[in-house]
Amino acid sequence: MTDSSFQLKGSVVTTVLLDIQKFSLDDIIFHLKEKIEQVPHFFNQAPVIVDISKTKESIQLDQFEALIEALNALNLGVIGWRCDPARLPDWKATVTIPLLPASKARAINAESGAKSSDQQDVVVKKIVEERVVSHSSKVITKPIRSGQQVYSEGDLIVLAQVSEGAEVLADGNIHVYGALRGRALAGVKGDKNARIFCKSLEAELVSIAGNFMLSDALQKSIWKDSAQVLLNDENLDVVPL
């Protein structure tokens, strides 16, 4: 595979869905211009999908092409179109942009100021497709030595010690089944429910979602004994296990 000059990958991008309810070119362009002026950065070169599934009247090819041309002139990039599969126009093959399969996504109404009923003819909807990625935990079986750094996107489980001068970080919880002598930072992406568990607490620093505690303070609570560290409001609690 390495000698290939390209790789094929799947990708998910946020696109703007122009969901047309009533086909009126001037109306659409007029209201769209208004929207673009509110947030010009968002719409600059934004990929757009034109959806005509909800239009009741039939649209002619020249009308449709004029719409695409007008959208491109507004600095939008039309990447495809959608139509009700039961009512596909007979010119469907002559359009240069790809026909996309019908949407299953739930539409989010991005309308802000427009309240009058006639403006509802044109609704710009933004579809954000999110991938739910569950991060599995990382298990380390060997000691983490001074100068080493280990990061887990989920939980981090260390079955050995974490030496002084080493650093362990996790988006989730941190478990150390050995002495924790280095620095441990749980919930680094802001998860306030993350906790740190260890068999012997001798850490230089413990932190949960950015709230930290140094060894001086730790020595006054639990030291060289099994403990868990959790966040209570803005304070770290060190509790025996």
Partner: peptide
């Protein structure tokens, strides 16, 4: 001891 710990990390990586 600290430096030895560091070199052990290098041996492993």
């Amino acid at each position: 001891v600290r430096d030895s710990d560091r070199i052990l990390g290098i041996l492993q990586s």
